[in-house]
Amino acid sequence: MRDIQGEPLLKVTDLTVEISTKAGSFFPVNGHNFSVHAGETLGIVGESGSGKSMTAMSLVRLLPKHAAHIRSGSITLNGRELLGLSESEMRKVRGSEIAMILQDPQTSLNPAFTVGEQISEALRLHNPGPRRTLRERAIDALRKVKVAAPEHRIDAYPCELSGGMRQRAVGAIAISCQPKIIIADEPTTSLDVTVQAQYLRLLRELQEETGMAILFITHDFGIVANLCQRVVVMYYGRIVESGPVDRIFANPAHPYTEALIAAVPKLRGQKGRLRTIEGQPPAPTDVVEGCPFAPRCEYAESRCFKELPPTVNADSDGEHTASCWRVVGR
């Protein structure tokens, strides 16, 4: 097992993102606390609209301009505060220290440039060198993500590659500058299941080789179980539970997590209808009093509708926390 003791690589404290509209402010990221250690994979799980992607974009400070901004909190990378950096300092961090893999490989490569041009652009920005070696380094990056015949593929345009191949190319861009952490925002959602499995295996191998950390954003608890050491569960912009994956799987503290795990289809065992969670999450603009999950929660009591539960330890060692009145009362 990797060493996840000591200072975290990425530490997020009380991060709040605000979206101001004429109708008022709301908070797609509300008081987040989490950290990622070198060599570790942290999963962020939640439904669409729960604020996962907003969290990811706020880490690289690329929230949609004018629409959303970081209201408060702190993001440190290796002890350095990112929120205090100027835009040009932040640009040096993007791509070189924090890299990202976006959701849709069909659209995340620029159709007007070759794969090689797109990889070497990142290299040239962060780690310049002569043109010739840039090309060789780009080929190396493609080789690392297991693209066959990288010497040829480097001159291909995105339209000439398959979906899985494109997502590997996006991966090659991400790893090309040897980042300390990769944020992967649902990188396998639009891939075939078999290609998806290959891609996850590839990510794991790359991580073992380079010791980078991965922040893996997904709505699929099955992938989390497969890939991550720790997980953060989000609901309506809040972290409702976080902790080591094995413990949360064995013993989910929050009813939402419990329901998510129950909704993962299993090959063996239980038969019958797939379990789902009744109802819809509140819209981001809704004003919610009490626990946002209460209307869908089978254990909800009257207190849940009135007061927001605090985040408390669900375990004696403080590794596993949850935000639920049932845990508070334990």
């Binding site: 690329l62 791509g95 070189s96 890299a99 990202m100 976006l102 959701q103």
Partner: peptide
């Protein structure tokens, strides 16, 4: 608004 524009920014392109 395209994803590849986001990816370019994520790479650190000015």
């Amino acid at each position: 608004d395209a994803e590849y524009i986001k990816l370019a920014r994520v790479k650190g392109v000015s």
